[in-house]
Amino acid sequence: MPGFTGEAGAALAFLIGYLAIFVWMLFLFLTQRIKWASRYTLLFFHVTIRVASQACGIGFGILGFTNTNLFLAFLILSAEGYFSLVLCAFRFLISWQQHNLLSGQSWLEPPDPPNTNRSRRFFAFLFLGPFAFILYPRNPMVGLHSALLLANVCIIIGGSYLAGADYSDPDLPDTKRRLQISKITRTTGQSVFLLGNALLLVLILATMRNNRRDGDSRSKTGTIHPTLWLLLLAWFPLIVRGVFGILQAAVYSLSYFNPANYRASGFTHRFTIIEYLLGVLTEWLACVILNLTFFTSMRDPKRVKLQNGDEGAGDHGLAHPHKNQVAI
């Protein structure tokens, strides 16, 4: 009999948490404290996805398996939420470099050289995926973004492939085949995300080391910008979420598709606690910490957009707008 379950209560709690972030970010956008064409737009997209995901979680917690479409929507939106959050962390690091490095550029995503054929580059990325880095080695983030996108596709395919399985009899050959294929694809996708998180730590630590040595927009050396400390702090819940993603894909007892994790009304209490502590809470914490960079970056200089192939002020002076540059 459908009713308000512990899972619906957990989903409601995090729906309120994400709605609070949603209202906060919308206020910043509407008051023009942050721009729509900024790193915060991707973070706002993550929050929007998570609001929808938690709403589906409430519906599934109340209706149970009388409406399996809500369950599938919850799974897909949850995967998209994690994917967008990992991208957010990289975009925030790149943005910090563009605003604070003395060159005015990010060495993770340098500006395009003059006369770059963007249509050709787009199709190269579309068909080659992460291997497009071979043709465009000056932009390493393109390969990483493509790899994360392919990993996301693997996770969605793995989850969707199990939708038609008969879980009343896990020993059926078709069910076993679906479980095995899904395990491979989902574990592969989650492994790429975990490697991306490991790489993120290396990049954050390298940026912090360079910041201490070379200084930043504050004209200080020997210290580390507070935004970088927040990015490092946000990495910890992200890596926990990444490890949990691997375990959930590879260990059947933690899988969404293990019948032992369900009652007639939905998730068991044990599975609900594990899912919301390691899956949802970690993402919410990382999202909150990334939002806090609004306060630590308020005094950062405006980003300098280079035109006509200019390469900025070089490695030894802070880039400032001139006749070929537009400050944004």
Results as ranks from 00 to 15, higher is better:
P2R: 14
G3N: 06
F4D: 09
F4G: 12
T5R: 10
E7S: 09
E7Q: 14
A8S: 15
A10F: 15
L12K: 08
L19M: 13
L19I: 15
A20M: 13
V23S: 09
L26E: 13
L26C: 06
L28I: 00
L28F: 00
L28S: 02
L30R: 12
L30E: 14
W36C: 02
W36L: 11
S38M: 04
R39E: 05
L42S: 00
L43H: 02
S53G: 04
F60S: 01
T68K: 13
T68H: 04
N69S: 13
N69R: 08
L70E: 10
L70V: 08
F74R: 15
F74N: 14
L75T: 13
E80S: 09
F83H: 11
S84W: 05
C88R: 01
A89D: 03
F92S: 03
Q97G: 07
H99T: 06
L101H: 10
S103N: 12
Q105T: 15
P110H: 07
D112Y: 13
T116K: 07
T116A: 05
T116E: 12
F125W: 11
L126C: 08
G129N: 07
Y136A: 05
P137F: 11
M141I: 14
V142N: 11
V142S: 12
G143A: 01
H145A: 10
L149N: 02
L149A: 04
L149G: 03
N152K: 07
V153A: 11
V153S: 06
I155H: 05
G158W: 04
A165K: 07
Y167C: 00
K176I: 03
K176T: 01
K176Y: 00
Q180E: 11
S182L: 01
I184E: 07
R186H: 00
V192R: 02
L194R: 01
L201P: 05
L205R: 04
L205M: 11
N210Y: 09
N210E: 14
R212A: 15
T221S: 10
T221L: 11
G222K: 13
I224D: 09
H225L: 08
L231A: 13
L232E: 09
A234S: 15
G242V: 00
I246E: 04
Q248S: 06
Y252N: 03
S255R: 00
Y256T: 02
Y256M: 06
N261M: 04
R263G: 13
T268G: 03
R270L: 10
I274S: 05
Y276E: 07
Y276A: 02
L278G: 05
G279P: 07
G279K: 07
G279T: 07
V280T: 15
E283G: 08
C287P: 00
L290M: 08
F294M: 08
S297A: 13
M298P: 02
M298K: 15
R299M: 06
R299Q: 09
R299K: 12
D300W: 10
K302T: 06
Q307Y: 09
Q307T: 10
N308F: 11
A313V: 00
D315A: 12
A319I: 05
A319K: 03
H320V: 14
Q325T: 13
Q325E: 07
V326T: 15
I328M: 14
